[in-house]
Amino acid sequence: MKKIAPFVAPAILLGIIFIGSFIILYIAGTPAQRTPPRIAAVLKTIDSNMEFWEVVKSGMQTAATEFSARLEIYGPWMESDVEGQKAIMDTVIRDRPTVIVLSATDYTALIPYVERAAAAGIPVITLDSGIDSAIPVSFVATNSVEAAEKLGHHLPSLLEAGRSVAIINHVPGATTAIEREAGVRKALEKDGRYPILGTWFTNNFLENAYAITIDLTQRYPELGAILAMNEVSTVGAAQALVDAGLAGRVKLLGFDSSLEEIKFIERGVLDATVIQKPFAMGYLAVRAALNAINKIPQARFIDTGSVLITADNLYLPENQKLLFPFAE
């Protein structure tokens, strides 16, 4: 006892200091948080006239603020500028952000870049438009099939059974075109009461949509409804129905929202449209990106949801904000 006393005493002293420091540091909390994660978002376009993307950005910004992350948004000016997006990806990867949120302009062209990001240890989240690769941790987008099914399910409330329907789609091979048509067909075929005349493609030209609609109304007098798979097709078809004097008689169900579409809904030309939730998409993409950094397991596909808009629910408070996202 006496012999070890000289060792015990300093040990106890050290213990006191240690315990005291520990208590104070514990209560005082961990000093200085780590640097916030850097999220690099490479979108399809940064054109501020693109309302959809503006809303996506504000959703991303909201999430970044809420979760204390740094958000940098990049992207080409035009959605069709695949090469531009590639170059941007190249720069972004070299800048080594903590995580990348990518909305791919092309289903395959961006794959090498995503692979490079993965090799550099940067997780990738895809937003709205994915790529043909298993690398991205999650794909945050509207479930197009499910969104299109909503139109199919809404049709019986507008149209008596037996009337035939036509599908006006935008670009053959485009992911949204394929999935939306699949959703519509799935719902209608399951219902079984509405024969589908076929699918016509507009190649994303309003005039084509208009012409196709005029042609359809002339060729198929029994035509009960037109299902238009995007905004251009919807507006073109609506205008054609108005001009053909068939507004209200041939039902029109469309996709997306614009002022034009809203006016057509008010006028009763457009009976329903399915809209996406870009704000939620941006918000959830950032949240998924942060989860990916923190290695929190999450679904590979995150559905941001869609809403069926009709004249009845057009001005409901929750839909106003979706249809008119900005005060000005």
Partner: peptide, 21 residues
């Protein structure tokens, strides 16, 4: 400035420990 306050208090706490001991 919670972190600053915390750090200041932690610093002075340790300083006082040493002085006291």
């Amino acid at each position: 400035n919670r972190d600053t306050i915390r750090r200041t208090y932690a610093f002075w706490g340790l300083a006082f420990f040493i002085i006291a001991i």
